[in-house]
């Protein structure tokens, strides 16, 4: 009865806020993402001690400190292996990973790809602002060729990484894009990402008022084109991201192509929403199928040192 009472406890947004003073720049898009994440956790009613937030390094890396959950602020580019280790230790934890675009698509590029392939049940939010802000605004892997933010001495001469395309080919089973300053929409996306069983990637257009003058709040709002907002929403279009039959290779291909087309088409506009979703066995499910004992209790609660190794010795005689 007591456990039930605990489960039924309602949590408010306030329950997910830590007391720590926030040191992001005034007006930073990160605030929008943090708020959306806190809202999503509250809406889902997840107990703070059952949630772990794992980050890399950079401005976004400080996110866990501002949340009253288990918080792991790890290494630059290593969010995904860290998240995987924590989740494997306790599969009942709701795991949210956060990191910047440089962290995820640049230094952590190898980890990003492998992190999708494993299909761990987790949600990965990338704060995508085109720059390495904490080191004062160098080009990140998402800045477009020929473009230059006010913090860059020269325009970029490299082809940018396309997050949706990279995520689709890396095996993420939920691929979405949000906008840091549309907190309501982003809250919904994060909620859907957390509810999705498998690896959910949410790439968030994040404004950096200090270093990125290319993609400012005004740019998204279309101030330069007579106030015609650049933001479009997939759920206001004829667009169904969900693969109905994961066994159907043709449908899978069709849904991926549709996502790519949508992500690439509108140069002057940004399209938000869920691009692709498919239900495939998660890493935890695949492991539990091999080893049913993993379902008995989280590994962190099992007394694994009581194993009988005598048969192993016998095998060697």
């Amino acid at each position: 009865m007591e456990e039930q009472a605990v489960q039924e406890k309602k949590y408010a947004v306030q329950d997910y806020k830590s007391d720590l003073h926030n040191d992001w720049c005034p007006g930073c898009g990160d605030f929008g993402i943090l708020t959306a994440l806190q809202n999503a956790l509250a809406n889902l009613g997840l107990a703070p001690h059952q949630v772990a937030v794992v980050s890399g390094v950079g401005c976004s890396g400080k996110t866990p400190h501002y949340l009253n959950t288990y918080g792991f602020h790890t290494l630059h580019g290593r969010v995904l292996p860290m998240a995987t280790g924590i989740k494997l230790a306790n599969r009942e934890i709701t795991l949210v990973a956060v990191g910047g675009d440089g962290d995820g698509y640049g230094i952590g590029g190898g980890q990003f790809v492998a992190g999708g392939r494993r299909n761990l049940d987790f949600t990965y939010i990338i704060y995508n602002n085109d720059v390495y802000a904490l080191t004062k605004g160098q080009a990140s892997p998402t800045v477009a060729r020929g473009k230059k933010t006010k913090s860059m001495p020269e325009p970029s001469i490299l082809e940018p990484i396309h997050p949706v395309a990279l995520a689709l080919s890396s095996g993420y089973t939920f691929v979405a894009r949000g906008y840091a300053l549309d907190v309501k929409h982003l809250t919904g996306l994060i909620q859907r990402g957390i509810e999705h069983r498998g690896s959910a990637l949410i790439d968030v257009y994040q404004t950096c008022p200090t270093y990125n003058d290319l993609h400012s709040r005004a740019w998204y709002a279309g101030k330069d084109r007579g106030g015609k907002s650049r933001i479009r929403y997939l759920d206001q279009m004829q667009y169904d991201p969900v693969v109905k039959n994961p066994e159907d290779a043709r449908e899978v291909a069709q849904k991926k192509l549709q996502a790519l087309e949508k992500a690439w088409s509108a140069d002057e506009e940004v399209t938000l929403g869920v691009y692709y979703q498919i239900r495939l066995p998660t890493l935890e499910e695949n492991l539990a199928q091999k080893m049913p004992a993993l379902q008995d209790a989280p590994l962190a609660e099992q007394r694994l040192w009581e194993r009988d190794i005598a048969p192993l010795f016998e095998e060697l005689t």
């Binding site: 290494l75 998240a83 989740k87 230790a89 306790n90 040192w305």
Partner: peptide, 13 residues
């Protein structure tokens, strides 16, 4: 990293 994080997560890794 994965092994270190699992240790932080409370298991032997």
């Amino acid at each position: 990293d994965m092994a270190s994080a699992a240790a932080l997560g409370g298991v032997r890794a």
